[in-house]
Amino acid sequence: MMTRILILDYGVGNLFSLMSAIQREGAEPLIRQEIPPDPCFDGLILPGVGHFTPVSERLRRMRSAIDEVIERGTPILGVCLGMQVLFDRSEEGPGQGLGLIPGAVVRLPDSVKIPHMGWNRLHLVRSNPLLHGVPQGAWVYFVHSFYPQPEDESVVLARAEHGVSFPAVVGRDRIFGTQFHPEKSGEAGSLMLKNFLRLCRG
């Protein structure tokens, strides 16, 4: 059966690219505003659209459903803002994140252009199945003004630099996050999505 990936829709829309990317990699995207109770999907993606405050609020209401997803061992991938809401809080605005990875999200320094927009290189710091085959220095596409500061450095799988060295890929157990957009990151992005889908297949 085709791997099914639930893409959570926070109501902001703009999920077409992520959906198309999942289709290009040969999996089936399901777009839902809620997390269905039955395990009808193999992986969950928290997309990177919107603002920290409303999105974290919405996600917290789904807290028990997200915990069940984690208990089942279903992989989760947070993209951009979807990665930031995995943390406790953000300088972008009030609200409590999911706290699945301890730490805070802070603003990029004013010494560089904000948003950090464009292609930048990954500095891989830890091997992980999500990064299998991704070369050191791979180019990926970023659009963001904030970045996470995890309390535990061991969750950082790759870093990038824009005024400051910041975590670009994080992972803890089967919970992952990318600060860049894999669906817009050409070959390296496609490789990471393939790896994520492989993890979803078990």
């Binding site: 829309g13 690219s17 198309s20 957009h181």
Partner: peptide, 29 residues
């Protein structure tokens, strides 16, 4: 958007939030 895996911008004649939503929800970045 279905084929492209790099970002793209769409402009020209966008005058309302609905115009913008139509373009962004169709996959423009």
């Amino acid at each position: 958007a279905r084929t492209l895996d790099i970002p793209f911008t769409v402009g020209g004649g966008i005058r309302t939030l609905d115009d913008a939503r139509a373009i962004l929800s169709s996959g423009a970045d």
